[in-house]
């Protein structure tokens, strides 16, 4: 037998040792299990990144979001409009340097179609503290079907570098329990993530 830096002489296409054959067989079987799990979880899993995807010009997306804000605005917080859309509606959030607009008030257990897009650069949608992450691009409308399963006060971190103010880019989502009529107050109340 030769080392890895010597030329093998003659024909080196020889049958493998039994141990090697067993290992390759185990590894191959494991790879197939892993592969089978991917479509399986896509069909059976409750949380997939596919969504409804379409192209949209940033200006058009801005106009659509502003229309959405006008329709359902209930207040303003830190200069950002607060919006409470009805259950089952299309919800629009725009990412820009360096804010997420608007602040959302959603109902626990209700279904929404959450549209995400950017007006300028790449941004990263990261919902804290549940830790759900999506890449947000200018020119693409990424619509995810979401049903909030717990009430609370959530944050949207931007986790894609978007210039010098990247660390300032923090949004807010409030999920109200259907039972309680009173909404959590401003920042910090209702359980800090």
């Amino acid at each position: 037998m030769n080392s890895g830096i010597e030329s093998p002489k003659g024909i080196w296409w020889k049958p493998a040792h039994r141990n090697e054959k067993i290992w390759v067989a185990i590894a191959f079987a494991w790879c197939m299990v892993l592969f089978a799990m991917m479509p399986f979880w896509h069909l059976r899993g409750g949380q997939n990144p596919s969504g409804i995807r379409s192209k949209v010009e940033p200006q058009a997306y801005r106009a659509r979001t502003q229309e959405f804000i006008r329709a359902y605005q209930v207040g303003t917080e830190s200069g950002i409009p607060v919006v409470e859309p009805p259950a089952g509606s299309d919800v629009y959030v725009m990412a820009m340097m360096w804010s997420w607009q608007p602040v959302l008030r959603l109902r626990k257990g209700a279904q929404y179609t959450l549209h995400l897009s950017s007006l300028d650069l790449n941004h990263g949608f990261s919902l804290a503290p549940v830790n759900l992450n999506f890449q947000i691009l200018p020119g693409y409308d990424y619509a995810l079907r979401v049903t909030p399963t717990e009430a609370g006060d959530f944050r949207i971190i931007c986790n894609e570098f978007c210039g010098i103010g990247h660390h300032l880019m923090l949004g807010r989502v409030i999920v109200l329990d259907d039972q309680t009529a009173s909404a959590p107050g401003p920042t910090g109340v209702g359980g800090t993530p």
Binding site: A128, H167, L170, R172, T187, T192
Partner: peptide
């Protein structure tokens, strides 16, 4: 310096 607070 962000508009909302967040503590990990």
């Amino acid at each position: 310096q962000a508009p909302f607070d967040l503590q990990f």
